[in-house]
Amino acid sequence: MTAPVLQVDNLKKHFPVDSGLRSSKEIVHAVDGVSFSIAPGEVLGLVGESGSGKSTVGKCILRLLEPTAGTITLQGTDITRLPRRRVRPLRRKMHMVFQDPYSSLNPRMPIGRIVGEPLRMHNLVDGSQLERRVSELLEMVALRPELRHRYPHELSGGQRQRVAIARALSVQPPLLIADEPVSALDVSVQASILNLLKDLQAELGFSCLFVAHDLSTVEFLCDRVAVMYLGKIVEMAPRKELFVHPKHPYTQALLSAVPVPDAKAQRHRQRIVLTGDIPSPVAPPTGCSFHTRCPVVQERNRIEEPQLREISGQGHHLVACHLVGPNGEAPDITRETSHAQ
């Protein structure tokens, strides 16, 4: 087996919060023991709702946040504790695309400089070649090279996100970290950016950590998917396996909550509506962190924390739930919720 591009082991990120009047410091357990790896050329989707910690994982890997514990290994090098000055060269190996193409581009720089900046920073291309390379990069993301003289405010949201993608891929990084790259865009623009990302990934073969809340875009783009809840991965499996045979009650509920754009199908579909909200990451529940909202909760789930374990014979399907049998027998949560109504 080839060595993974990225290996994350037991990553934790805790934020201390001042709780106002009380003198005791409280701790937000944003990421609480996350492990996964990404193989060369693989797209891993990290999906979860707000507060699940998915973006924090991405930021820790990029070293935009300092991890509290755990190790992050990029192409065989432990980068968890690299000093600041040695983080910068890492941007050649991993680059990022963010959600909001309005705030992630410098409004005072013309597009050509924005796209060429990483190349200049890393002295990858000498001056005479820079312009030609920038034009190539713009063409790669289907933008006219003439746009390099324009400023971000003159571009549409979709065009701006293409600029951000061209900038990220300019250094040909082995790993791209994309945090909700299409969720601020309109449906028709979203489609073209998703197609572009898919084409570029197939063409250039980079690995990608795709952080998103939208399950359908994750299914479209990713080879493997990890589902996060309250700072932990609760289920991880190859795309098809996860979407067709979800095991964890949370994954099942999440999938059933996505409305399908088809009135007839949507109305005849059995939906699982979870009650309650995501608990506070300051004081996560004991036992299984999902037990407060789980429709099939049992006494054991409240006390004992389930570990992420592989289900035998299901092709690398991992799940953290006491109620999933050793051979992947999943609890039927639709029946339980329809009783409740």
Binding site: S188, A191, S192, N195, A202, L215, F220, K240
Partner: peptide
């Protein structure tokens, strides 16, 4: 618009399938 939305569990398995663009 309807063709541009990615749909759950409706994507064929081919690696090169695309969403319809406007």
């Amino acid at each position: 618009l309807l063709a541009a939305v990615p749909r759950l569990r409706e994507q064929p398995n081919g690696e090169r399938d695309r969403l319809a663009e406007i």
